[in-house]
Nucleic acid binder design. Structure first.
Lengths: 155, 155
DNA sequence: CTAGTTTGGTACGATGTCGCACTACTTATA
DNA sequence: TATAAGTAGTGCGACATCGTACCAAACTAG
């Protein structure tokens, strides 16, 4: 009984440990390919807007990445300073804003993807993509659980 | 052909995206259970030393977590300030130091694990541990690949 | 042995992250 | 409609992370 519990606990620790290290390594790797001063968090926002459509509110984006809104606010201000996004008023809610990609933003995303592509291609060669595909729904499930647990954390 | 490539790329983006969000959520969740001012990075170091044995050099530990040595140096100084670790000279290399857990450090680790246990237990109830167990070697493989890619990045 | 190179660790500065507090607006309630 | 409660976004301060530069010790080559 308690043996099972401790082994469960060990396994979960191992999981989050691996995930933490992979996050660390992949972030460092990708940031090494991006122009100086551009972080993965910046690219991710541009990519998100491009893939899922722009015209979203900052809070929508913050929730998508599960980061505090103040963090995203900072990121957006940098993206705007670089001319990659544009903040427009939200006609539906005067407190709110809508985030739009500029042409420069779309262009930057494309070139960034191009500079990441060789690494990605190498990964695709060396890793088992079938395994990764199979893993994605399991990871999404873990993500979703943590998301719910976070909401319940006020308890 | 190029369709496959772009779908591979999409899949890898999705993977790192999920991993980033899970890292984010789990870190926030765990840090909410730790005493104010104690971060997951601190706990992880104590846990590492306890599980794999202390008397390691800072650089060993930095490599284990794949963080820059300056980051670990900062973390260790905080742990030392709290009396949870002890830095002793390395008899084998006068430039180097060895990191040892103190009794207070071991005790803190235990209580921290206890305070994390309820969340972990809930996860163990709601997640499929078999899936996670199966995922661990795949994640380790990805980690290992990224590790090698990092070393080759100087190329 | 000595000079040049490599390695372990730290100091310092820049910057991203994030909690707190606040304002402006919206929604719910009476 | 008026008042209270909730929500979107930002300013600010604290601090972790990390790159650069540096020192001291260890290794390597001649």
């Amino acid at each position: 009984m308690s043996d099972n519990k401790t082994s469960d606990l060990r396994m979960l620790f191992a999981l989050f440990n691996e995930i933490g290290i992979i996050e660390q390594l992949s972030r460092t790797l990708f940031e090494g390919r991006l122009p100086k001063g551009v972080l993965v968090s910046h690219f991710s926002v541009l990519n998100h807007l491009s893939r899922l459509g722009d015209g979203r509110t900052p809070l929508d984006i913050a929730r998508a990445f599960q980061v505090p809104k103040t963090t995203l606010s900072h990121t957006l201000s940098l993206l705007e300073k670089r001319g990659w996004i544009e903040m427009r008023p939200n006609p539906a809610d005067k407190r709110s804003k809508l985030v739009y990609l500029t042409d420069a933003g779309r262009t930057f995303r494309e070139t960034a993807i191009d500079s990441l592509a060789p690494d990605m291609a190498a990964m695709a060669d060396h890793l088992n993509l079938g395994d990764i595909e199979a893993m994605l729904p399991k990871l999404a499930e873990i993500r979703s659980y943590l998301d719910r647990a976070r909401d319940a954390a006020g308890t």
